[in-house]
Amino acid sequence: MTYRFDYSWIAEYWPVILKGLVTTVELTLIGTLFGVALGIACAWTRSLGPRWLRPPVVAYVELIRNTPFLIQLFFIFFGLPSLGVQMTEFQAAVLAMVINLGAYSGEIIRAGIEATPRGQFEAGASLAMTRFETFRHVVLIPSLQRIWPALSSQIVIVMLGSAVVSQIAAEDITFAANFIQSRTFRAFESYFLTTGLYLLLALALRQALRGVGRMLFPQRAAR
């Protein structure tokens, strides 16, 4: 192998990579926030919500979990405009991530809710809390605490999966890598460097989520 690695392009192209990094972080933050919120709504519906709402939620969860993210993205970005729904690449990417994480986190959170002892609901009711208050204060927080590790891994998976949004020209890290390799013809170097970036991002995200977990569930640290 006589190939010579050449990283001299970094001097010129690092702002492109930085911009991609910011976009990936933004996508992950917004996607996580709304995705987990959607997941909580789905989990509530499936375990405690009105019965007539459950079949559509089950259908949504099964449909998303059994189709590739790439196709969901293409359907949203290329398919929905024919129904008159127009959106930018970034909006389509966020929407796809929210819908995807919503289905996965919904299943994870539901497992947490269903592991709640029956007595907790009764205890909430006996304190004259409404059903919503019981859910919010008594059921949800301990449930989230229970499944936080699983939810964290899923969020990391969704962040890594977001590399695909470059295919609809949302300008994330992978988009930057594609852009650079098309300009410099240094394909391997460009993908190698950005893959390293993803690895660092995954490690950082895992640490950050651990921190968020400690912040949200402080009683755990005291125990």
């Binding site: 999966g161 992978t174 993908y191 190698f192 993803y198 690895l199």
Partner: peptide, 11 residues
């Protein structure tokens, strides 16, 4: 597990 499958394919 810490890098995107897409990047692994490119590499």
């Amino acid at each position: 597990q810490g890098t995107p499958l897409l990047m692994q394919l490119f590499l």
